[in-house]
Simulated assay, not measured.
Amino acid sequence: MTINTEQLAAANKANLDSLVELTQKAFSSIEKLVELNMQAARESLEQTAEQAKAVLAVKGPQELAALQQDFLKPAQEKAMAYGRQVYDIATSTQAEVKKMAEAQMAAAKTQFSTLVEEATKNAPQGSEAAMAMVKTAMTNASSAFESVQKAAQQATSLAETNLKNLGETAEKATKAATKRRA
């Protein structure tokens, strides 16, 4: 079986469409991160100005120590919130890219299966055993890929759970430390 120019053009168009979609997802994610960073920078600048004014109005060391305690908790909470937002952006982008890759893999698998079926129909007499071996190899490769994909999904899920637990633990520890200082 030969690939004609229409099939080649369709494959190139599909690849270009995928590249454009992937690029758009990447830019969207970058835009979200830039927006988040600009918001964080703006809030940080405003907060720093307010804190500087408050420090200049301090009349003694005890008042300064109390003021520092007041500054610490909101800063920790904002840092945790920022980290969660970055994590959310990254995981949503990863999920979109993964979905797109899975669709691409499914399409490629279908195309390959179609090619093998076409080749089987047009195979010369006596090549049935060889074609059966190709089909078996394709089935085995597909099963292996699915197993690897499941293992990767489990590892990703475990990593996400561990990261979430770590964030919650850090947040609890921060709150406990802040309460002890107060």
Rank of each mutant, 00 (worst) to 15 (best):
S92T: 15
R42N: 13
Q149H: 09
A173W: 03
L22V: 07
T93A: 13
E77K: 11
E6W: 06
D17T: 05
L56N: 14
A57N: 06
A123W: 01
V116W: 05
E77A: 08
R84Y: 07
L33M: 13
D17N: 12
F27A: 10
K13R: 10
S143F: 06
T5P: 11
T178D: 07
V134D: 01
G126I: 10
D70N: 13
Q51W: 09
Q104C: 01
A152E: 14
K78V: 07
A119D: 04
K135M: 02
A130F: 14
K99N: 13
N165L: 11
A26F: 10
G126S: 06
S157R: 04
S44N: 07
Q154R: 12
A106V: 10
E102I: 00
T169E: 14
Q69K: 11
V34C: 01
R181F: 13
S147G: 09
K121M: 05
K175R: 11
K121I: 03
K99C: 00
A155V: 12
E6G: 06
F145D: 12
E117G: 03
Q62V: 11
R181Q: 13
S92H: 13
K25E: 09
V134Y: 02
K73E: 14
T178G: 03
A170C: 08
Q7T: 02
I3Y: 05
K32F: 04
Q7I: 00
M1K: 09
E128I: 11
K53D: 15
M100H: 11
K73D: 12
T48G: 04
G167I: 07
L22I: 09
T169Y: 09
E43K: 07
A101P: 02
Q51Y: 10
M80K: 08
T91E: 08
P74W: 14
L19C: 06
S18G: 13
E43M: 01
A9C: 08
E128V: 11
L56Y: 06
K32Y: 05
A79N: 05
Q62C: 06
A123Q: 02
T48R: 07
V58N: 00
K164E: 07
Q154E: 15
P61L: 07
M105K: 05
E6I: 08
E31Y: 11
T174Q: 04
E77I: 07
V55P: 05
D88W: 00
E35Y: 09
L8S: 10
T161K: 09
E168Y: 04
M38L: 15
L163M: 10
E50C: 09
A65N: 11
V55I: 15
E128C: 07
M80N: 11
N15A: 13
Q51C: 06
M131F: 02
E171Q: 12
D70P: 08
T114P: 05
Q104P: 02
R42W: 12
S147K: 14
R84P: 02
T91V: 13
V116D: 04
N162P: 00
E43V: 03
V34D: 04
E117S: 12
Q85Y: 01
R84H: 07
A137C: 03
N15V: 08
Q24I: 04
